[in-house]
């Protein structure tokens, strides 16, 4: 028997739901990454999951982002489209937020470390203390594993099932 693995994309996703028996659906903070990305501006970092200080951010990658960096490792999982990640060293002493990622001016991004061309299902390390940027000619979707930072957007009431 041939099986079909059902993946999803910006253009083709189906959303499940919480069927409440005796509970409040808000306890489950139920959302869909593709729906969130479809409503987001390019490179907004919208939290779709939060566990104390840690978050997962849904990002609509479209065009070329600014340079960013964090003091800790992050990861980026491409869920739709194709994304090019470029990595550079970071100028000594450049200030970064204690947690989460922050913007890096062009002049603070130094030596080229390498590039990754990632497609759906590919998980890429965003290494601590290094500058990175994302580029995608067409809308793509990325899930970032990180810590909440100054640019994390919290929109639970907009993105989650409430009834």
């Amino acid at each position: 028997m041939a099986y079909e693995t059902r993946l999803a994309s910006l253009m083709n996703y189906q959303k499940g739901r919480v069927d409440v028996i005796d509970d409040d659906p808000k306890n489950y903070a139920f959302s869909n990454i593709f729906e969130v990305a479809s409503l987001a501006k390019p490179f907004e970092q919208v939290a779709v999951a939060k566990n104390f200080e840690y978050v997962l951010e849904a990002v609509r990658a479209e065009g070329t982002s600014g340079w960013r960096a964090a003091t800790h490792d992050q990861s980026a999982l491409v869920l739709d489209g194709q994304v090019e990640f470029t990595f550079k060293t970071l100028a000594d002493g450049h200030p970064l937020p204690d947690s989460g990622s922050g913007g890096v001016p062009e002049e603070a991004a130094g030596t080229l470390m390498g590039r990754v061309l990632a497609r759906r299902g590919h998980l890429t390390l965003l290494p601590a203390g290094r500058a990175y940027r994302l580029a995608s000619p067409a809308p793509a979707v990325v899930l970032i594993q990180t810590v909440a930072g100054p640019d994390t957007q919290f929109r639970w009431a907009e993105i989650c099932q409430t009834a």
């Binding site: 059902r6 993946l7 999803a8 996703y13 189906q14 959303k15 499940g16 739901r17 919480v18 069927d19 409440v20 028996i21 005796d22 509970d23 659906p25 489950y28 903070a29 139920f30 959302s31 869909n32 990454i33 593709f34 729906e35 779709v48 999951a49 997962l56 869920l79």
Partner: peptide, 10 residues
């Protein structure tokens, strides 16, 4: 509750 999750759901 029952939670039905499809690809992309969180």
């Amino acid at each position: 509750a029952k939670v039905v999750m499809k690809a992309g759901d969180v």
